[in-house]
């Protein structure tokens, strides 16, 4: 997982509040994007599901109740850091990406939320998830999407 997209934004909230909004309230600010759909069917609502001793996972739930597991949470540090796997339904077993989100207090009650999305180079350019885009173009589009999503998170926190 060498290739990375890094996007950062300051939000007016404490790290604890920003973490809570990013995780527990992801369904409120998250919006799907046709270029980066998790499944070929209609998009659903994102949530982090607590599996008890089995940990946590990020899922997309469609209107009819069907659940797609986007990835398992591997790091869960409220107010500080989150790492979760990120797969689309069409990925082959050797394809995987990972999202790391950090929450850093930067003064004046503000928090820098940084999203690091790594591993898109594991998905070949010819694969349907890449839409034929060269890596640099695909990652730029993906970064723009994360920027738009973080702007929505910022508004959600306002």
């Amino acid at each position: 997982m060498a290739s990375r997209v890094v996007v950062a934004l300051r939000v007016k909230a404490t790290p604890e509040r920003a973490f809570e909004a990013f995780t527990a309230e992801i369904g409120a600010w998250w919006r799907p994007n046709g270029l980066f759909a998790f499944t070929p069917r209609e998009p659903g609502v994102l949530s982090f599901e607590d599996l008890g001793e089995a940990g946590r996972r990020l899922i997309e739930t469609r209107a009819g109740g069907k659940v797609f597991e986007i990835g398992r949470v591997t790091v869960w540090e409220p107010g500080a850091r989150l790492v979760v796997g990120w797969r689309q339904a069409t990925f082959a077993p050797d394809m995987a990406t990972e999202v790391e989100v950090t929450f850093e207090a930067v003064g004046d009650g503000e928090t820098r939320v940084t999203v690091i999305h790594a591993g898109w180079d594991s998905v070949p350019q010819a694969h349907v998830a890449r839409h034929g885009f060269p890596l640099a173009v695909f990652q730029m589009r993906h970064a723009e999407w994360w920027q738009a999503l973080l702007k929505r998170l910022e508004r959600h926190l306002a």
């Binding site: 060498a2 890094v6 950062a8 730029m140």
Partner: peptide, 16 residues
Amino acid sequence: FELTLLIEDADGNLAH
């Protein structure tokens, strides 16, 4: 200055 966007290629080189 604050970093707001960084894109790296498969070798970890800065693309943008």
